[in-house]
Structure formats: structure tokens, C-alpha cells
Simulated scan of single mutants.
Amino acid sequence: MGRGSGQDGGMSEQTDILCIGSVLWDVIGRAPSPMRHGSDVPGRITRLPGGVAMNIAMALGRFGLRPRVLTAIGRDVEGEELIAACERLGVDTQLAYRSEDLPTDVYMAVEGTNGLIAAIADAHSLEAAGSKILQPLTGGVLGSVERPYAGRVALDGNLTPALLEEIAVSAAFAAADLRVAPASPGKAERLLPFLRHPRAMLYVNLEEAGLLCQQVFDTSEAAAVGLVSRGAARALVTDGGRSASDASAAGVISACPPEVLVTRVTGAGDTFMAAHMAAEISGMPHEAALNRALQAAATYVAGEPPA
């Protein structure tokens, strides 16, 4: 299993994956019927720990790994409740940046049986904290410029474009196995600094791949190959219920997800990414890891307990 190579060996030895990005409250309204613009229907509203980095961390924990998050969480009531919830879920928040002045971030979404209807992500505190969340990787706790962290890193696109650019060229990340995902299609172009990064793997959907390549793709295979042709070391492209593809200079493989009844969508891509990382950490070859991740994502969207 991957480990950090920071100066505090005891702390870094307790982490299999370092998840960097948004950890916040997900407020999700779900209706048991299709919805359209202006719909006013009965349903359920839940508040759960979320954010791309947190969703990945929670899923990694379900696969038996030990995730740690680098993020910004306020010292308000919502932040204290979030820290407690993370602890119950087995996600290590010891190195999170805790601000007295910044409120805890929140994501709000409305979903019907026809998918995501609308969402608003308020990650302003994460953006305002900026490079302060990376202090453990630059100040010696987990690593430094002189002794870069050599473990696996899941990085999400909720960070500012400037901070993502900084990470892409930072010596502190030069030895890391970087797995990068946008938070949404609207933030896909924030990943451009990693398009030619020699140690980065991109996890994107078909729309996000098109935005990064500035063209429209009809299939995940064409999109994954397109990303590699533009310089990506490795790219994994999903396309909802259609086939997903994993491409590198060695070639491309594709697989179709199982057909399931969709009951939720928020967090599905993060579950897919976590399952794929966990499968590769366990030693699965690329094709088996892709199929394992597709099965895990299908189980998630069907609302079933994780396997």
C-alpha cells in the first residue's frame, strides 16, 4: 500500500490515500418521480457529509483503506458537527485547515428519478483558504519540497485554478501518484495544468473530456484516446450508463456498467473513482479494476448497501 514519505513517519504511515479538496455538508432533496423546471413535489431532504474529496474518502474507507483529507473546515457549529461526522465515518481530519473566520462550505442539490435537476456548490471557504490547506505537504508533517510526499493523492477540482496550477508544478507533489477529478463540468477546465502532467491520471466524464479537449466526443473511448493524444499520461472517461474507457500510451480498454434502476446520482462519480483506486491498490489489472469500479458505481446509484 502507498505511504507518505514525510518527516513524521508515524503519521504518514496511517494513510493509504490523501484526499485534497472539498469536505462540506451535502444537502440533497430527492423526489421519487421525474422532475422538470419549476416542479414542486414531495420527497426527502437529507444532510450528509459530502464534497468530492470527502465522497472519495468515505468510499475508500468502505473498501478498507485509510483516507485522510486536506481541506478547509470552519470552527462554526456546522464545522464541529462535520468533524464529528467524519470521525464516525473513519475519515481522518487531523490535518484539515480550521478557520475561525470562514464558514463551513455546503453543497445543495435537487434530484428526481430522471437525474440531477439543479445544484449549487458553495465552496468559497475552501477557495479562500487556498494554499493553507497544503501546509502538511510543504511544511514537513507529511512531506516537503525537499522530501516530497510519495503516496497516492486524490485531488478534486474545487480548488482554485491558481492553486491547481501551483500543485501541478510544485516539487512537493513531484513524487506523488496523482489521481485528479473535476468537481463538475463547469470546473473541468481547471484541470488543464494536469493534461500534460507525467504522474497524473484524469477521471472525467464524456462532457468534461470534451471541454478539456475543446471538441465533442461521441464515445468514452474516443474521449479517452483524445485526452491521451493531447498529452495526458492516463485518462479514464465515464459516460453514465454507456461504456467507460481507460486509455494511456499503451492503448485503451472499455467496459459497460451493469444496468440498474437509478435512485441517486450525487457522489456516483466519486464512488467510481474511489473503487477504481482501491482496485488498483489491491493489485487488479486495468480491465478488472475498471469493471470493479463500474460495478461499485452501479451499486451506489441503485441505492444498495456497498459490497
Rank of each mutant, 00 (worst) to 15 (best):
M108C: 10
H124A: 15
I20K: 04
S243D: 01
T104L: 02
P148R: 02
T299K: 09
A84R: 06
A121Y: 00
A109N: 00
R3M: 12
D239H: 09
E259A: 14
S229A: 15
V77K: 11
E81Q: 14
Y107A: 04
G157M: 03
L142G: 08
Q295Y: 13
D40L: 14
T71V: 03
G4V: 06
L70M: 10
F217G: 04
V225N: 14
P34F: 01
G38T: 06
L60Q: 14
G231N: 10
V52T: 12
G4K: 05
I28A: 03
V216R: 13
L24H: 13
S99H: 07
L191R: 12
V106W: 10
L212E: 07
G140I: 06
L116E: 08
L191A: 02
T271H: 08
K187Q: 06
E165Q: 15
G269F: 07
E80F: 13
D239W: 01
G4N: 04
A121R: 04
S12N: 13
A209G: 00
F173D: 06
G157I: 00
M108S: 12
S245F: 00
L191Y: 00
N205P: 05
L191E: 05
M35K: 05
V216D: 14
S243Y: 01
L116H: 08
A123L: 07
D246A: 03
Q7V: 12
Q94F: 13
G74K: 05
A121G: 07
Q135E: 14
A59N: 07
R230C: 09
L164Y: 05
E207P: 02
V260M: 07
I253N: 02
A298T: 00
M273T: 05
D105I: 11
T263F: 11
L159V: 08
L142S: 02
G139E: 14
L212P: 00
G231R: 08
E127N: 15
A57G: 01
V301A: 05
G112W: 11
I17N: 01
P198A: 12
I28T: 07
Q7C: 10
E280C: 12
V265R: 11
S220L: 00
I253L: 06
K187S: 09
R199P: 07
I117D: 04
Y97A: 08
D40E: 13
F217K: 06
